[in-house]
């Protein structure tokens, strides 16, 4: 591990100045991904600016009815918060499907968004990886691709984004509040993460020195009828092969509003806008759900090792919509939790 300095900033502006003023500096929050990367040699900052003690640990309603989640709120506290459990069940479900009890007690809301891919080649410094060392090549192509992307990948990178939380936040239309040297800006979560293209070393559009201070969730009817379903290689404590977050608002036998995001399939949490468009204004039927899934997955370009993800994503999406539609009908309560068991 490369030696580094360590500071605890007095406030968010101090933190931004500390990182922004030094090219090799990085923010430290829960550390669950960064400390591992320091050990593995994946990254080597020369200064860690510890933001975990900043007063960004509140969850509060805004005057507009939105929920503002401080960036240092721990994953376990966010999942257990009464407002989240009632209004945004997909978010609780996604958080609880991720990592372990110990890790959720450490990991923060902001840090979760900026965790990096678990592609084995990214984490193995003895192999080429365009994300870790730009221009060095992609070892996954022609290698192990079980975890790789089926949507939006490039010839330079087929990594997937590992977050569960971010997939739910995307389906809930979250925004991210960023503080930079020039002040604050708010970005839709959908605009935060990037596709790899020929610059896969950049996971997000965030500039060096910008700090996420909060995540905001609008108060939407569909959010209350939302859930998250995760399919993985073991029952617990594993990353997603495929996951689906969806929020569904059905009125008078018609889909009034629907938001869908997929995890484990792309370089970023994947908003399924084609599926949403295929569903909006239609009757919530099994056949309609399948057509919507097909509309989204028509663009899938699987590799040899991950072709299974296309039918898996299709089935998982249909199942989630079926469960949400059943719940909206007052039918048997099913919220998709079984997906990860």
């Amino acid at each position: 591990m490369i030696p580094f300095d360590y500071v605890r900033p007095a406030d968010p502006a101090d933190a931004v100045a500390a990182v922004g003023g030094r090219p090799g500096a990085a923010f430290l929050a829960g550390g669950t991904n960064l400390v591992d990367h320091l050990k593995l040699g994946v990254t080597g900052p020369d200064l860690l600016v510890d933001v975990s003690g900043l007063p960004l640990d509140r969850i509060e309603e805004t005057p507009t009815g939105a929920l503002r989640i401080g960036a240092t709120v721990r994953n376990s506290d966010l999942a257990a918060h009464p407002l989240v459990r009632h209004r945004y069940p997909a978010l609780s479900r996604a958080l609880l499907a991720g990592a372990s009890g110990q890790l959720r007690n450490m990991a923060t809301t902001g840090g979760n968004l900026f965790q990096r891919t678990r592609c084995p080649y990214f984490q193995d410094t003895s192999t080429p990886c365009n994300k870790r060392v730009p221009g060095s090549g992609c070892s996954a192509l022609g290698g192990h691709t079980r975890d790789a992307a089926i949507l939006g990948a490039s010839a330079h990178c087929v990594a997937t984004h590992p977050s569960d939380m971010a997939v739910a936040l995307l389906a809930l239309d979250a925004s991210v509040v960023l503080l930079g040297p020039d002040g604050e800006r708010t970005l839709p979560l959908a605009a935060l993460h990037r596709l790899p293209g020929d610059t896969p070393h950049r996971d997000t559009v965030v500039e060096h020195g910008e700090l996420v201070t909060a995540v905001e969730l609008p108060d939407r009817a569909s959010a209350r009828h939302s859930t998250y379903r995760k399919v993985r290689d073991r029952r617990s404590y594993a990353f997603a092969l495929v996951s689906v977050a969806a929020a569904l608002d059905v009125a008078d036998g018609t889909v009034r509003d629907v938001r869908i995001a997929l995890g484990g399939v792309a370089h970023k949490p994947w908003r399924a806008e084609r599926a949403e468009a295929a569903l909006r204004g239609t009757a919530p039927t099994e056949a309609g759900f399948a057509r919507a899934a097909d509309a989204e997955l028509a663009a899938a370009r699987p590799l040899e090792g991950n072709a299974f993800k296309v039918p898996l994503a299709r089935r998982t999406l249909v199942a989630v919509l079926r469960d949400l539609a059943g719940a909206a009908d007052g039918g048997t309560r099913h919220d998709g939790r079984e997906g990860g068991r």
């Binding site: 360590y6 550390g31 400390v35 510890d50 975990s52 376990s76 110990q102 890790l103 007690n105 450490m106």
Partner: peptide, 12 residues
């Protein structure tokens, strides 16, 4: 609260 000592920096 339960945490993992291996991913926590002592200085933090």
């Amino acid at each position: 609260r339960r945490v993992l000592g291996c991913l926590a920096l002592a200085v933090a």
